[in-house]
Design a protein around this nucleic acid. Structure first.
Lengths: 361, 361
DNA sequence: AACTGCTATGACACCGATGTCATGACTTCG
DNA sequence: CGAAGTCATGACATCGGTGTCATAGCAGTT
């Protein structure tokens, strides 16, 4: 690989002059510049980041630790593929800032994290971003020293900057939209309560009811999914039977995620009911392969993973620049409701329903 | 950040001795070693890869160019998320070899590739891997010079080493398994013929029929999906009607992918038919969120994305080591059939069907 | 005793960039 | 015309490690 000295020799100038052409930080004669550029092209010269970094101490690298690449091997997927969208958001912002992402995967074992962080520090990353595969609390033993750290889709007890999906707000918006469409008996089949998101969404569900002066009916909110092998879908089936048997059966059923909704479609139809004429269904995650492919297409909420990734990247960049806007705790990012035909309007003023609070479609 | 000199001073030894402790490439006295290790721990010393690289010329970095992170923003997803599994496979092998992955995303614009490659070369990556989001031909203007390049899920005209899914073999295995189960009238609803995979799979389908002495009936093989906005699913509906109206209707319907199968479930049931009692269904991709969630679970083929990634990484590592086992063209990797209850056996000798050719379950 | 061989360590140059400072040519101004 | 300022360029040190070679101490050999 050609070095700056080779180029200098070929162009009959000093290495420093080549450096000046490269960085444009000092005036260079027209002739000289042309000679240098020719030499560079002929030799296929590409400057070495390593050498450059030794003086400047700026690696241009951002370290990203995630389980995104491995967690899909696990049998249980609590949600869709949030982390990938997050990584995507981060990548986009970083690329626009001229930073290069270096990625390491935990392989599902958080014990590997310190090792991975060490590797990153060896490469002198300018910031570290940790992306979790679902909304959870973590205890990160980074040993990252003074390297900026941002958590995404997770938070810790030490007030490390964190970007989180606003599960509560999302569920609130969805249920509020349902209420605007005339629904009042709204069932909610929840995910495993062990998940942080479950509790948050439940709050959003209740808050929306309360805001509309609809009394909360505990019989309508049922846990219908457990993250254990024994849950073969039986929970969902029983939950459905339970709410349908109520005196005032629900006109719409909210699901903890889109996969649950997909199963529910089958269960509802096998009971001879139509969607949405007899009962409406709403999901969560906007898992498009499901939500858009189902018939009728599924009304669901999109967690703002892409936006979260972007925001996390912005925060990280800010911390690199030393801006003191360091948020000392979690920042919640809301996401939009995707209204599709799996939910029918019970009143005629459908148009009242608008995309409140959504920042993107 | 502490340097090797700081450590040397703290331990009252020469920098070179610290280096020896780090790399274990020469004997170091017990006492001395302990002193150095203590100093390193106290100072939180992490060696700089940049400095190390300047002498050794080994960056420990592997460059990965992909559209994996952005293509899911596109409205049309021809297949599942193959590239992610590929990246996962690569990551795993590279991590095991102590290499760090640096990732850049094309953002869907292949025009960005030269720029990305340049960045990688600046970081002196030891190899470049390009991952496409679906099986296709590419023309890569890398300008990578003498840096090893491996293509995954795509190939070019120059004989660059490439790892490809064996679409033909996969479809062959699936159809052969169907035939073993007693099916003879096997419909095949294909994807857009513009895709490389479509033609290959079609060949596999016909080869399986031929191997079993079942005459090929063109009326059973219908294009049912086009990658254009106008295709709202109408093609699939008409294709289904068409095969069901035949004199000898199919006993099993193969789909170009799992999403198509998901839609087909709905269409078949809306015609009052049961799956698999009245007609069996098979998919393609083993898109688990769909295949395992549907009721009944979907028989489908898994393209060996993970294995492809691993293989690509191995090839790349081999090229780095300078091994001459360089394959000069594409290498095809087969994948396993996942047999689930969406296909019924028409004969009683179900047990004949075994996981032929599958290397993993 | 002189020599060989091994262990443990340090001095020093070097990798490929860039920051600092110096220098020579030329312009501009009082 | 001489002083001051600008432009274009180069010499040299430096960043943080590692390769090479030298050296000193201490067996073991003959």
């Amino acid at each position: 690989m050609a070095t700056i000295y080779d180029v200098a020799k070929a162009a009959s100038v000093s290495p420093k002059t080549v450096s000046r052409v490269l960085n444009g930080d000092a005036p260079v004669g027209k002739e000289t510049r042309k000679a240098v550029e020719t030499a560079m092209a002929e030799l296929g010269y590409v400057p070495s980041n390593a050498a450059r970094m030794m003086r400047s101490n700026r690696s241009g690298l951002i370290g990203l630790v995630t389980g995104a690449l491995s967690h899909k091997l696990e049998p249980m997927e609590p949600t869709g593929l949030p982390d990938l969208y997050i990584v995507q958001g981060i990548q986009k912002v970083m690329a626009d800032s001229g930073k290069t992402l270096i990625i390491a995967d935990t392989g599902g074992t958080s014990a590997k994290v310190p090792q991975l962080v060490r590797t990153f520090l060896q490469h002198r990353v300018e910031a570290l971003i940790y992306v979790a595969d679902y909304h959870q609390q973590v205890t990160l033993d980074t040993g990252a020293g003074n390297c900026p750290v941002v958590l995404v889709n997770c938070f810790d007890a030490d007030g490390t900057p964190a970007i989180l999906p606003d599960d509560e707000c999302c569920q609130f918006e969805l249920v509020t939209d349902l209420i605007r469409s005339g629904h009042e008996r709204i069932a909610y089949l929840t995910l495993d309560p062990a998940m942080v998101a479950t509790e948050l969404r439940s709050r959003g569900y209740r808050a929306a009811l309360e805001a509309a002066d609809i009394p909360y009916d505990g019989a309508l909110e049922i846990m219908a999914r457990k993250n254990v092998e024994e849950d073969d879908g039986g929970l969902l089936q029983r939950a459905l039977d339970s709410v349908l048997a109520l005196d005032g059966p629900p006109t719409v059923i909210c699901c903890g995620n889109d996969e649950m909704a997909l199963r529910l479609y089958g269960l509802i139809r096998s009971r001879g009911l139509r969607i949405p004429e007899d009962v409406s269904v709403a999901g969560f995650d906007n898992y498009r392969a499901i939500a858009e492919t189902l018939y009728p297409p599924l009304t669901t909420v999109e967690l703002p993973y892409l936006a979260m990734g972007q925001r996390a990247a912005e925060i990280a960049l800010g911390m690199i620049k030393g801006e003191d806007e360091q948020l000392a705790g979690p920042e919640m990012v809301p996401g939009p409701v995707h209204w599709r035909s799996s939910v029918t309007a019970l009143n005629s003023v459908t148009k009242l329903r608008s995309n409140t609070g959504s920042t993107f479609s």
